[in-house]
Simulated scan of single mutants.
Amino acid sequence: MTAMERLRFGVDLVTFSHPAFWGVADNDAIVALAHSDLRAFWDRLLDSAQHSGVTGVELTFSPFNWQEATKAYGSVEAFAGELRKRGLTLASGFFAELEAAGDFTEASAQAAIIGKAEKYAEFLTACGSDIMVIGAPLRHTPGEWPARFFDFEQARKIADFLNRLGAILYKKGVRLALHTEAHSIFAASRDVDLLMLLTDPAYVHMCPDTAHIIVAGSDPLDVVERHHERVIIAHWKDALGAMPADTPIDKHIHDRHRPYFCDFGLGRVDWPGWIRLLRDRGYEGWAILELDAAPDPVGDIANGLTLVRQALLPIYR
C-alpha cells in the first residue's frame, strides 16, 4: 500500500465559503445563491473539489451541509452517486449542534441533539462514511461576570453526554470525533487532556485541527503525541500564531479566527514533524485539508497537495 493510499486526502467544504469564489458580496449572498439553484451550486462545489485533486469531502454548515446536498440531488442515494461519478468519497460530516445548543446539559437539549445526530448518522452511513466530526461548546470570554469555569465537574457532565452520544452513534455504524476548535472547551492542551481523560476511548475519538490548536496557544504535535490513539481523522491547516488571551468569544469568534489562518507552509505548523509523528504512531486515514473561506480554493488546495507530495509523503514513507 502506497503512502497516498494510507493517507487519504480530502477537503472540508468550509474552504469554498469565500464570497469571492462565488462572485458575491458576503456570506448571506452565498446562501441566497445556493438556494436560487441548489443543483447548480452543488455541481460547482463537487466539481471544484474534484479539480483540486482530493479524493474526499467533509460536509459542514449550511449551505454546505447534508440537508442541502440531499435537496440538491433529490435523495441521499443520488448525492452518493454524484460523489462516485467524480471519484470522490464522503470522508466525514461536521456536526455543529453542540456549539449552538447553549446549555446542553439540560435533558431536553440533549434529546434534541441526539435526534439530529441520529438522522445525520443515517445519512453518513448511506453515503459510505463512518465519521462524524463534532465541534465542542465554546468557552466564555475571560473576565465575563459572573465567571463560568470549565472545571472538573462541568467537564464530567459534558463527558457523560459525549460518551452516551458516542455509544448511540456507534450502534448506527458511525464514530464520534471531537474537533479541536479554538476557543471551545476542546482545543487548548489542558482542555483536550481533561476531556480525553473523562471520555471513553471506545466511543469518543479525536479530530485534531493543527491550526486551531496553535490559535488556542498550544502545540499540535504535543497534543496529538499524548492522544494519538484517539485520532481517527485530522484537519490539516496552518496558522500564524496564538490569538490574544482576552479575545472576545461571541458570535463573531469564527470571523476573528480567519486572519490567523494562512496557506500551507506559511505558518507555525511543523509539517515535517507532524508527518513524522503520524508515521511513527502508525496513523492511517483521512487528512482533511482546510482553509477557512479561500478566495481560490481549488488552487490553494492543489498547492497544498503539491507540498504534501513533494515534501511530506517522502518522510511518511
Rank of each mutant, 00 (worst) to 15 (best):
R8N: 07
G10C: 04
L13F: 01
P19R: 01
D26Q: 02
L33V: 06
A34V: 11
L38H: 06
A40R: 14
F41T: 02
W42Y: 15
D47Y: 06
Q50G: 03
E58F: 00
L59V: 02
E68S: 14
T70S: 09
A78Y: 06
A80Q: 02
R84N: 12
R84I: 07
L88R: 10
T89P: 02
G93V: 05
E97N: 00
S108Y: 08
S108A: 12
Q110G: 12
A111V: 07
A112R: 02
A112M: 05
I113N: 00
I113A: 05
G115N: 10
K116E: 10
A117L: 05
K119T: 08
Y120C: 12
A121P: 00
L124G: 03
A126I: 03
G128I: 04
G135F: 03
H140Y: 12
P142H: 01
G143H: 07
E144F: 14
A147T: 13
R148A: 13
F149C: 13
F149M: 11
F149I: 13
F150N: 10
F161P: 01
L162H: 11
R164L: 11
Y170G: 08
V174W: 02
R175V: 00
R175N: 10
L176I: 13
H183Q: 15
F186V: 02
R190E: 12
D193K: 11
L197W: 14
P201N: 07
A202E: 15
V204M: 07
T210G: 04
T210W: 03
V215I: 07
S218N: 03
D219Q: 00
V223P: 03
V224L: 06
V224C: 02
L240Y: 09
T247H: 00
P248Y: 01
K251C: 13
I253M: 08
I253K: 08
R256F: 09
R256W: 07
F261Y: 14
F261V: 02
F261K: 01
C262Q: 10
G265H: 10
L266T: 15
G273T: 06
G273H: 02
L277A: 04
R279I: 09
R279P: 02
D280C: 09
G282Y: 04
I288W: 01
I288S: 11
A293H: 14
G299H: 12
D300V: 13
L307A: 14
V308A: 14
R309W: 10
Q310T: 14
A311Y: 08
L313W: 15
Y316R: 15
